[in-house]
Write a protein that binds this DNA or RNA. Structure first.
Lengths: 216, 216
DNA sequence: GGATTTGGCTACTCGCGCGTAACCTTACGC
DNA sequence: GCGTAAGGTTACGCGCGAGTAGCCAAATCC
């Protein structure tokens, strides 16, 4: 391979914007499967159908690339949920629409979901950012619960609310993982199931009923 | 440093069993903070107060070391829960004791918990094993729910049960993470909160009440 | 139709970190 | 008290993968 065989320009040149999206797609896919450290830039480049220096030219270092992925997927997800759960709706309707949008997102972007919640959460320089994102989500849910409660003239301690919100978010994420691993499952149906658990459970709980530990 | 300065034997020699535990402690700590790939064997060795070849001599390669950690922490956790939740107790008592043991474990072994659920879940060669462990847990929970239901003469589809169990486990894990990040929080109290949410929520849900999506 | 910008490549450097070879020394069996 | 196993060390080989230098070619501008 000493002489460059002036091969026919088999593959076309594409504008930067397009290539960047292809690279991000490939990166999300590889990162989600392998994790940050085990993923190699070479594999990402190959998967994107381009050579490594192009990735560096467009998206920067590995860390910057990871952040760019996080950013795109996080924004997509946030937008999907926020767009669905308009703040002027009644609480259960809001929760329902939010859940439906969320499970819809997970069903349609399994790699993105896996990257956000299976990889980024435990990987050091990024865990903080993800935790913050999640904390905001928890706050929103807690706010919804609080709002719904006040409308009924009830009130609950802040920590109490936060804990219920955490449980709700955790249950939802867990079902999302279940969904991600069951390609045949229906996002809509999963959302309905979660809504059942959330609304009835939280409703009961915040309605004032409590379970008390036995004397032991 | 050409000549070996025959320094006084400042540090004592310890039997293998002790050193192994020290190494595992260090490894769990480092792995939980950095993740499998970003953790270095040098750091683990240093943290254990020993030199690297000893780690290799006792626990084998990095991968084997990780598995050994997983094994120890997983067994500790499983034992703690299984020991508390005797199968001949009534369902709510069993659930309560299991939750209490679980949150007790997380409170006492935050690093172990972080390693199991923040790191191992997303790291490729180990994710499978962890997923299996989790799946068994879900089955146990589903079994408990099923048992409780049948005792009341009710019955629910298998998928339905599994989904509720997933949600319950996810909610519990989420609260565990909350606990891991709030050193001041009380594991016992957290367990009570989770029990509230689980028992009341699941009870309602499995009692036959359902929430139905609105027309649109 | 030249100049320049934009898209693209091959082929390297270089450091980090896993795993090991070779060697030392204290305790213990007998 | 002396051989040998068990605890311990320093110092290195070596591969893999992040990041780069340097170069080519097709659009696009004017």
């Amino acid at each position: 391979m000493l002489a460059r065989v002036s091969s026919a320009p088999t593959f076309k040149r594409l504008p930067r914007a397009v290539r960047e999206q292809q690279m991000l797609d490939a990166a999300v896919k590889v990162f989600s499967r392998r994790g940050f450290h085990a993923a190699s830039m070479d594999e990402i480049a190959e998967d994107a159908g381009i050579s490594k220096p192009m990735v560096y030219a467009y998206l920067g270092t590995k860390e910057e690339l990871f952040i760019a992925c996080l950013h795109r997927e996080g924004t997509r997800m946030t937008q999907a949920i926020a767009g669905a759960a308009a703040p002027d709706l009644p609480a259960d309707e809001r929760l329902w629409r939010g859940l439906r949008a969320f499970f819809g997102f997970v069903g349609a972007h399994r790699d993105g979901w896996a990257m956000l919640y299976r990889q980024a959460r435990g990987t050091q320089p990024f865990a903080g950012e993800l935790a913050a994102m999640r904390a905001r989500l928890v706050e929103v849910v807690a706010g919804m619960l609080d709002h719904a409660l006040r409308a009924e003239g009830r009130e609950v301690g802040e920590t109490e609310l936060e804990v219920v919100a955490y449980a709700l978010v955790g249950a939802t994420e867990s079902l999302a993982d279940w969904l991600a691993d069951h390609p045949e499952a229906d996002p809509e149906k999963t959302a309905t199931r979660m809504m059942n658990a959330a609304w009835l459970g939280a409703g009961q709980l915040l309605g004032g009923a409590t379970w008390r530990p036995p004397a032991n």
